[in-house]
Write a protein that binds this DNA or RNA. Structure first.
Lengths: 232, 232
DNA sequence: CGGAAGGTTGACTTTTGTCAACCCCGGTGG
DNA sequence: CCACCGGGGTTGACAAAAGTCAACCTTCCG
């Protein structure tokens, strides 16, 4: 846990400064929250062995992408959750479930609060708890959407859903998406093989819903059209 | 919202009395929780139109099964979440997402707390909030498992996973599972067609992992074997 | 007894996974 | 500066898995 108060990046530099959990807090609490937060960077956040980050109550992703991954006995893999800048990582300290680990892209940074009750007075604490709970319910809703998507939509539809979701979360103002991972990872995220992902991207491009400039740079040409594909 | 204090079933009669959220609360809080709780029964809990139950902060399922369902434009369906007796329903008042609704089996009962802050003093409230948060994170973990299951496991493996999960949650002491829904619903839950569910059940029966006595009564003959199938 | 709904089974089709070849690009070292 | 190398990505031919459609069976109710 390499940290030093002086290393703490000013929230002014935070890519998620204007959106996500922190920005939704009431102004005075936001102030105090900035004081409480401690930065941490580690590529393996939790693992099955209990290794990883410990001693935190709350974690906000500041930079990078955090993935929750599952590996089955026989090597099959799945990415079951994604947390992008501004969002809370809802997880227990230390990985508990079999085959589960939480990893982060290389250039990432977390903001941690070690102990809510120790850092905040009761009123603030209660207020934070309720924001946390609300965020957790939103997250649950998002996971439910993911389940419906994977359970019932075809490859191209799943991709459309993913692209729209990532654009919304990573670049809400723009029309481009920088995929934060490889074709294999996208496959693990959507329950597809890399080849199928490749073919589905091609299909979306051929009907002029997206344009690709490099394997990970995608421009959304027709949001409404993509949404129609994603909606079933 | 048909309710009357006198109609409130004594917690003594609650099928989830000894397990689930309520039973995990510290004893004195459990006491106060019983006072605060209001029963409610309605088959449509929330719908897209905003119809449904309103004015609650916390909902515990007492009897029956609550399902979160998704319907796509073209009629495809998915069940994205299940809440059984003793568990919290993590959802917002009124359905918000497109195509989403929360329904319950006919013989069900919810216990509601309209407003946590109004019903509990600050200390209890904080304690409850933290139990709720912990439950939400557990629920998130369960949904992640579901995603991995649907994304990467075959029909028979998905079924094995479901059966073990339901046995654990509905009848942890016994070896039988009463499926709370039809083949179509199981298909919607696992991302399969009813015919495939039927064939997969047959497959599990033929290798002596389960025995069926009626379409919805299933006896688990070999938990370890089933777990091996479910584990990938 | 008859009918309807849910469940099962079988024949066939479609979709996606599999495997292998190839391409493209970035990095390295002669 | 250019040839080589390797990893990720794409494409194609083929195989396997699940979906589709239709028939039939079973159970429950009127």
């Amino acid at each position: 846990m390499e940290r030093e108060p002086s290393e703490h990046p000013r929230c002014a530099d935070c890519p998620a400064r204007d959106r996500g959990f922190c920005s939704r807090l009431p102004e005075p609490l936001q102030e105090r929250f900035r004081e409480a937060v401690r930065p941490a960077a580690r590529d393996r956040l939790t693992g099955e062995d209990g290794a990883g980050l410990t001693g935190w109550d709350l974690a906000v992703v500041s930079r990078g992408t955090v993935s929750v991954r599952n590996t089955f006995e026989d090597g099959r893999r799945a990415i079951t959750d994604l947390v992008v800048p501004g969002e809370l990582l809802h997880a227990k300290e230390g990985g508990n479930r079999k085959g589960r680990e939480v990893t982060a892209s290389s250039d990432f940074l977390l903001c941690l609060v070690p102990n809510l009750e120790a850092e905040f007075d009761p009123a603030d604490c209660h207020c934070l708890e309720s924001y946390i709970r609300s965020d957790a319910v939103n997250h649950i809703e998002a996971l439910r959407d993911m389940i419906a998507t994977i359970a019932r939509l075809g490859p191209t539809e799943r991709l459309a859903h993913l692209l729209l979701g990532l654009r919304e979360r990573l670049n809400p103002e723009g029309r481009t998406v920088d995929l934060p991972f490889s074709r294999d990872d996208i496959g693990d995220l959507l329950g597809l093989r890399a080849e199928t992902v490749s073919r589905s991207l091609l299909a979306l491009e051929q009907v002029d819903l997206i344009r690709r400039s490099g394997p990970k740079k995608i421009e959304i040409l027709d949001s409404a059209g993509l949404a129609a594909v994603a909606g079933g």
